[in-house]
């Protein structure tokens, strides 16, 4: 079995591996004790995603929309639940961020995943988030 990634080792690998397909993807290591990798997708409207590794899991999260941007929360929640099973490789979720509720699209991988799988997750997640935002356009303010 591979050695599991840590947030730091994964960040270093993503930055130093020239074979990784990361054009237009800006990466920054943020924070001290529980560091995260801040990802900005320059070619996808500067979509800002976050990545963190903890033990056996890699968690990548992308902000879909604020709850305050949703016209009808009940209808939107149901639409999200219905979209979730047919959304490839990503999940939809709701999180408290600061003093607001934020709908997120997120993916989880094993922290022993090969680098290529992590890179793919980043691209797929950005794509899925934008597609979801587009699909939900008429439900959002």
């Amino acid at each position: 079995m591979n050695t599991p990634w840590t947030t730091e080792s994964l960040y270093e690998a993503l930055r130093s591996d020239s074979t990784a397909d990361l054009e237009g993807v800006e990466l920054n290591l943020v924070g001290g004790v529980d560091a995260t990798v801040s990802i900005v997708m320059r070619e996808q409207g500067d979509l800002a995603m976050q990545l963190a590794v903890s033990g056996e899991q890699i968690f990548v999260s992308s902000p879909l929309c604020l709850a305050s941007q949703v016209k009808d929360r009940n209808a939107f929640n149901e639409a999200c639940l219905r979209l979730n099973p047919i959304n490839p490789l990503s999940n939809l979720g709701l999180q408290r961020v600061g003093d607001e509720d934020l709908y997120i699209v997120f993916g989880e991988l094993s922290s022993r995943s090969p680098l290529q799988a992590v890179v793919e997750e980043i691209h797929v997640l950005a794509d899925n988030t934008l597609q979801a935002a587009e699909a939900f356009a008429d439900q959002l303010k």
Binding site: T7, G31, D34, Q50, Q57, R96, G98
Partner: peptide, 25 residues
Amino acid sequence: KQQIDTVKATESVQRAQAALAAQHA
């Protein structure tokens, strides 16, 4: 352990997002 890992990873990401939100505030 996986659950704890998930909660921890989610928390880190959430904190990072909250920090971003605070920058905008």
